[in-house]
Structure formats: C-alpha cells, structure tokens
Design a protein around this nucleic acid. Structure first.
Lengths: 174, 174
DNA sequence: GGTGCTATATATAAGTC
DNA sequence: TGACTTATATATAGCAC
C-alpha cells in the first residue's frame, strides 16, 4: 500500500525499517481495535520495537478490561510495579479492573498470584535450561531493555484502563 | 474497505459479526506477519473468537518460535491439547520449541507448569468474584466463554533465533 | 465455517516540512 | 521521531456458491 510495491522481506535500511515499523504498528493497532469493537472479540497485541531502543508499544484492545501482572520474586513484592523479571497479563472484566487497585484483600490475592507466577517462571527457567544453546540470546542488555519497555507499557495501560473504562460505561452494552 | 462504509461499532447480526471476525482476523494476522518480517520486530497476537465457539486463533509471529500451552485441571492432564479451560502461552526459542515434544522429562515439567497455572486460574477466579457487577458482560454465556478462554496471556517473552540475532547485531542501532 | 468475485474504503511508501 | 500529502497497493463488505 503505497507508491511502490513492497516485497515482504526485511527492510535493509534501518531508517526506513523504523518508519515502516511505526506506521504499520499503528495500522495494526487500529485494525485490532476495530476488530474488537466490531466483533466483540478480545484481542491482545504485543509489539516490540525491532531495535528495542524505544518502548515500541504494547496494547491489548478488547471488549474487556485488562490486568497486567508483573512477576517478581515474591519476597520482593510490595505492590505496584517495578523491576519486572517477567511478564504475565490477563484480560479481566471491566469491574475487575476497577477493584484491582481498590481493596487490600485484592492485594493479598495479587501477592499470591505473584508467588504463583514466580513459580511458573522458575519452572520455565528449568525448562529453558534444556536448551543446549543460549547463544541465540543476543545480549543481556537487550533483554533488560525489553524488561524496561514492558514496565513502561504496563504503566501506560494502567492509565489507559481507567479512561477506557469510563468510555465503556457510557457506551451501550455489547 | 468494502463496498460499503462500515461504522466501527459492534455488528449486531451474529452471522455478519462472525464473518467479519474471520476476515479481519486473517487480515490482522497477515499484517502482523508482515510487520515482523519487514521490521524484524517481535509481534504477539492473541485473538479470541467473540462466541468462544472456537478457539479462534492465536498467533505469535516473530523471528522466534512459539509455544502454546493450554491449561487444564491438572488431574485431567494427559499431554497434547484439548478442551482448554485456560490459556497460557509463551514465546520460546526455536530450540526450546523443538525440545518441547521430545523429552519425557520435559513433559514432567510441563505437567508441573500445568498445575501451577491451574492454581493461578483458581486464584484469579477468586479475584474475579469480587466483581459486584457483571452487567457489562453482554451475556452470561459469553462471559463464561471468556472465563474459559480469555485471561492468562503472555507467560514468556524470550529470545531469538540466530538468524534474527545476526541481523540485529549487524544493523546499526536506531 | 470456506471460497471466489468485485467495487470500494483503507493503509501506507515516498516525499516534504 | 510527528504531521501532512499523494499515488497506489491492499483489505474487505456484500453477495453467490
């Protein structure tokens, strides 16, 4: 879609590549939003910038609200999000999202979830250890970048949740 | 895009809605694939059918391989995928994905993961029970479907194939 | 649910600021 | 990067199997 036909292969020029990523990323987000609205489907979309040099963006667009849980070592859990080691997210009902930050009891459960997620993380780490080759992890630095991006993305989503929430409450039920 | 302009609001006719979902879902998948290929970006896409009558589809398109894990009550675990109660998915390295179905020991770990995931599912069910209002869920039936299908997503954001790797390392940082 | 067709609405490559 | 423009490539609504 453009003045020139584009072959679907990696764009060599880094600059063009980043531009394409930016444009197309937005396009996909729009489509995902439309799909969700038109069809009442839950759609999750995760996009990581090819370079990792910026947050790229992360979106979940759905008829339902979203809850994102970062997994950390349980002993470091204090509530709130920070230094994620791992990402886990779940789509929840709108109401759920509201309560999410409102009750202490909920926080207790959240903590429990955190612990469980951590166990899963550990289990998966074990599984990964079966991999005979870790040279495919290009750099620890980039991995850390991803971790940071995800955190920021989540913070955005937290804000976004509330806004979206209001919109949904004023729109006719689906 | 079509013979008639379409307002972006929920499509009332269930039949048309399903058709639109099917068509647009494929479209988004294609776009996500293109984005990944063109830009070398990791893209995760999760789509849940509005009816829940089929698993709809789930795709992660990226330089990485994908692993999808359906979570069921541990006692029903037999390996293989069927009757999902819960969905959990993870991006894994190619190598990981290969091993995935190759070792018994791996299966043991997978089972353990299944158990843990189930615990999380239960914890989330409890959390959800705090919801005082489900009127925003358009129908109980659909809500139940959502409970079954939607919810736990992205367990893992992991690394990359060597090819991807090399590409990244040889391109200038943006 | 799928496939195929066609007319149209959209997305977007390239270029400019 | 972001915003806009233009020309063109694509996606897809509506319909028929």
């Amino acid at each position: 879609m453009g003045r020139k036909r584009l072959l679907i292969k990696r764009i060599d020029n880094p600059c063009s590549r980043q531009i394409a990523y930016s444009k197309r990323g937005k396009g996909i987000l729009k489509k995902a939003t439309e799909l969700s609205t038109l069809c009442g489907a839950d759609v999750g979309l995760l996009m990581f910038s090819p370079t990792g040099s910026r947050i790229s963006f992360f979106v979940i667009w759905t008829g339902m609200m979203i809850s994102v849980v970062l997994v950390r070592k349980p002993e470091t859990f204090e509530g709130g999000f920070d230094v994620p080691l791992y990402l886990s997210l779940s789509l929840q009902t709108c109401t759920f999202a509201c309560l999410y930050t409102q009750t202490d009891e909920f926080m207790t459960l959240e903590r429990k979830l955190c612990e469980l997620n951590w166990k899963i993380y550990e289990a998966q780490e074990k599984m990964r250890s079966y991999s005979p080759d870790v040279s495919n992890i290009y750099s620890i630095a980039e991995a850390q970048h991803h971790q940071q991006f995800v955190t920021k993305a989540i913070q955005r989503i937290e804000k976004f949740k509330k806004t979206k929430l209001l919109e949904k409450e004023t729109s006719p039920s689906l």
